[in-house]
Design a protein around this nucleic acid. Structure first.
Lengths: 358, 358
DNA sequence: GGTCTTTACCAAAACGTTTTGGTAAAAGAG
DNA sequence: CTCTTTTACCAAAACGTTTTGGTAAAGACC
């Protein structure tokens, strides 16, 4: 370990309880009691209390959070585990989590494991060395339970002392498919999320179920599997390109998320399809930029900031000894924009032509 | 302060130096010396050292980082100040900073001040209570110097003990304008960044200078001022709408960043303009989704991950006692995609028609 | 004026480390 | 066999808090 050569640039004599107490001709213990307003502070006369507060203000005393944590065994810090701080999903969540936490005087450490199993094993431990009090897990499929209270956003494993904040995927699938059905779509391309993505399985289950209910057939030849580990539109772009080579008939795409929708649209446009005239596309998430795509994205909105807030609040509740539910369901919303439209017979035909001419 | 009711779910007896030492029939001091491999460890015979390491492994001893920080006065934690964790810019930076830091066994706290002066005043102090060793400042115009070493990304104020990591804005402006000039653009709409955005001033200065060099006139009636405090495309959408009502002649837009470019394009398309046939648009930043816009964005790429890494590395160097420069310049790159094209006379005329017919 | 309460504090231990000054015991020197 | 050196540790203090058991001094009471 390197020598501690770090420090204050200005060597202003750091004022701790000791120097504050000396200044007041009191002991640190007394000052601490008053400053923290614990019950026993009532033993101290008002006059002295005023003196203490005044001096603390004057000397600009700031308690050392580290010393305090050591003594109290509370760090007011939580750990966040995520595959990465991604542009849409991750940033939105992190921002909302951070806002809530800082209001409650908590902070967070984030460890991005890039889905590497060794890091997924290691990082929780490092975070615990740092005395985090609990975890928020984002888009991460845990193998083992964590030894501290945790809340998962888009996790689905039932694990001890873990609360899952999950979207109502059944409702989400129904909203999306209903919308497409109403526009007359029958041959719909579905994208299955990457196997490592926490939502993939559950969402796919929900889609299959909704499809049955709505009388839509999910055709293997129209089912695409995402594999690339990225949040960029690249996740779907080549997959869609490959698919188009097979010249299948279809009039709509239900993407795994907004970024895959964006990548797919890009690929469709390059191949000469028009969106939504030839092909309708539905996204998922409603990231900030979805509304500003061209065409703007019809999508299933996940209330991400709300989910983030719920997650943070639930964890803090749990940390402060309250009972919390094992699962919290949040409702999606269908946001209709420009990327979906009628699948008329005529359009289907033009579309066929397009395809045949390649 | 609430009673510390928090804790391990499983009450596995937490193993600290004391219990490890007891287990070994040694004292904590001895064990510490060996485990840390400090020079004096050579006094301890190899056999004992092996015993210690074996026991540490067996009991799964993890040093308490808080206690260690208290003693060593090193927290291996830095503070990040940013207006928010935004979707493009912020997320990209945070991700890269985090990757670098965690490799060096550092972590960060982020405080998002939403440009509120009171929070900008308060948060650095809270972060310092938490014993951060230094700061990374993102897109934040500091009023006063911070009392700890700091590195600013896109900051321009010269302050003591602060290193600025800045883009070469002169080069950036030249690249963009040259590109437009080569395509024959003369009447170019410029966007000035929000006054509170750290890059606004410097970038505008660079643009003005480059314009003179390249013989382009910056016309007041073609100069747009952004004001909205958001990283979403909404930042430019209404501004462009307003501008279009004035029916000015122009063939290109140099946006303040990618999101404002996206918002502007949206607005142009809605008004019936074609991009790039009628109007060319140049963005700035090259966020992940820029390549997947439709049309894909021609833009000035800021090497954000590189800047983030430089910032993190520089701060750590400084913290470990090395000399660091006051300013580090990074080079932009022109990424030519679909949103720019020729401004031919003919096109200008068609464009005029379009405008006249409103 | 002695005893009992109350008031207004203090002293010391503890949290889990690291660091430094010692020191018994063993080994080596003569 | 004594004296010195080396070996292999230990003991205690310190980091900045919080908490708890005390305790002098002042006041109340008879």
């Amino acid at each position: 370990m390197p020598r501690p050569r770090v420090g204050k640039t200005k060597s202003s004599p750091v004022v701790n309880l000791k120097v504050l107490a000396d200044y007041l001709n009191l002991t640190p213990g007394t000052v601490s009691v008053v400053l923290n307003g614990v019950p026993r502070a009532s033993e101290i006369p008002q006059e002295t209390q005023d003196r203490i507060f005044a001096a603390a203000q004057k000397l600009n005393y700031r308690p050392n959070h580290i010393a305090r944590s050591l003594k109290n065994k509370r760090s007011f810090t939580i750990g966040i585990l995520a595959p990465e701080v991604s542009e849409g999903y991750g940033a939105l969540l992190l921002n909302a989590i951070g806002e809530y936490l800082i209001q409650q005087r908590y902070f967070y450490f984030v460890a991005t494991h890039r889905r590497r199993p060794d890091l997924l094993e290691e990082y929780p431990k490092i975070l615990m060395e740092r005395s985090v009090e609990g975890f928020i897990i984002i888009d991460t499929a845990l193998e083992k339970p964590l030894p501290l209270p945790a809340v998962a956003i888009s996790g689905h494993r039932k694990l001890p002392d873990l609360t899952n904040v999950v979207l109502d995927h059944d409702r989400a699938a129904t909203l999306a498919l209903q919308h497409l059905v109403q526009f007359g779509h029958k041959r719909i391309v579905f994208m299955k999320g990457q196997p490592f993505s926490a939502d993939s399985e559950e969402r796919w289950r929900a889609i299959q179920q909704a499809a049955i209910r709505l009388g839509i057939r999910i055709l293997p030849e129209l089912t695409l599997q995402l594999t690339m580990d990225t949040f960029s539109p690249l996740v779907a772009y080549p997959v869609m390109q490959e698919f188009l080579k097979k010249k299948q008939e279809f009039t709509a795409v239900f993407a795994y998320n907004d970024f895959s929708a964006i990548g797919a649209i890009r690929s469709l446009l390059e191949a000469g399809f028009k969106v939504p005239e030839d092909v309708s596309v539905v996204g998922f998430d409603d990231v900030n930029s979805a509304a500003f795509q061209n065409p703007s994205l019809t999508t299933i909105r996940q209330p991400l900031q709300k989910m983030a807030e719920i997650a943070a609040q639930t964890l803090l509740d749990r940390l402060n000894g309250r009972e919390v539910p094992r699962e919290i369901l949040v409702e999606p919303e269908l946001i209709i924009r420009e990327s979906t439209g009628l699948a008329s017979r005529k359009r289907l035909n033009t579309f066929r032509e397009t395809v045949r001419q390649g």
